[in-house]
């Protein structure tokens, strides 16, 4: 393009078009120099440079700063009832973990959450498989997701309470609703984006029906499926805590939502903060440990994502 412009400019200026010939130059050859003469070829980074390249260290730094701001503000506000200090929150977290019911509460939440999440993902998988293999299935999934995905899961809780009573059943129902549509939508869009060459390769191997979906489409669409699973998990975790806040304890003992509610009633604000902290911690743990591990051992290893 640059050449084109230069030529055009010349034409505009009406300079007589002299044909430029590049000068003829001699050929030459050189021996590559030995490495010793060049000196330094690579140098390892200093510890400080390495630290700055470590994302964990950078994130920790942000957390420390946030904690400091919290502590300073809370000490200045001096109102433990409304805004406890960071240290008081950590103290409450320690106490209720070691001496109190926080661990049991967290386990109650997670065990119900897992049931709901896994059932939601299984249902989403079946529905999407059906959608990929038949046209009716894809129409059905399209209509259902369009109808139900805008509907907040927690809005179904009153109905679920009437149908399944006060207990795990209701929460599981609401959780499935929270997970199903998000995961199914992502799975389907992942399947649709699988390249034509890979599809043909799979059919070339004689793969058909559910084997084609399970052995070819699923792994090929795994980057999108994984992000769907993450979104589904986030929805489920939020819905879980919200549902527990609404109706508190069940016969088997309440979850973290109930822990927060209970402590608010007793004006144990530091413990309320500790409960919220636990919700965040579990969220980070699942994201950073579970999903991260899956990602490293699948899509990263396969070079499908950076």
């Amino acid at each position: 393009m640059r050449w084109g412009n230069i030529m055009a400019n010349k034409a505009d200026e009406a300079v007589p078009a002299a044909r430029i010939e590049p000068p003829v130059r001699d050929e030459f050859e050189r021996e590559p120099r030995s490495i010793g003469e060049i000196g330094e070829i690579s140098r390892s980074l200093s510890p400080w440079q390495r630290l700055r390249d470590n994302s964990l260290a950078r994130n920790l730094f942000i957390l420390v700063v946030l904690g400091l701001i919290w502590q300073i503000y809370a000490m200045w506000a001096n109102s433990p009832l409304l805004f406890p200090t960071f240290t008081a929150t950590i103290q409450a977290l320690w106490d209720s973990t070691v001496h109190g019911p926080l661990l049991i509460r967290a386990w109650n939440s997670i065990s119900i959450l897992l049931i709901g999440y896994v059932s939601g993902v299984v249902l989403a998988t079946l529905l999407t498989m059906f959608a990929v293999l038949t046209r009716f299935g894809s129409d059905l999934l399209g209509v259902l997701t369009a109808m139900f995905s805008p509907l907040p899961a927690i809005a179904l809780l009153p109905l679920a309470l009437m149908w399944f009573g006060l207990g795990a059943g209701s929460i599981v129902f609401v959780l499935i609703h929270a997970v199903l549509w998000a995961v199914a939508l992502n799975m389907l869009s992942g399947f649709i984006s699988v390249s034509e060459t890979l599809r043909m390769a799979g059919r070339n191997y004689g793969l058909k029906g559910w084997r084609y979906v399970a052995k070819l489409l699923m792994p090929a669409a795994f980057p999108t499926i994984l992000s769907g699973l993450k979104i589904g998990w986030m929805f489920a975790w939020r819905t879980q805590i919200a549902a527990e806040l609404v109706f508190g304890a069940t016969s088997s003992g309440g979850g973290i939502g109930w822990f927060i509610f209970e402590n608010r009633n007793e004006l144990q604000t530091a413990s309320v903060f500790a409960g919220l902290f636990t919700v965040i911690l579990i969220g980070l743990l699942v994201e950073g440990l579970v999903f991260r591990t899956i990602e490293v051992h699948t899509v990263r290893k396969w070079g499908m994502t950076r």
Binding site: S195, T197, A201, L216, A220, F222, T298
Partner: peptide, 20 residues
Amino acid sequence: HAPGPDRMMVFQEFEQLLPW
């Protein structure tokens, strides 16, 4: 009638191996 493993295809695209 249909694709089958008795006629193995080598495509032009490099991305024909299963990445996983």
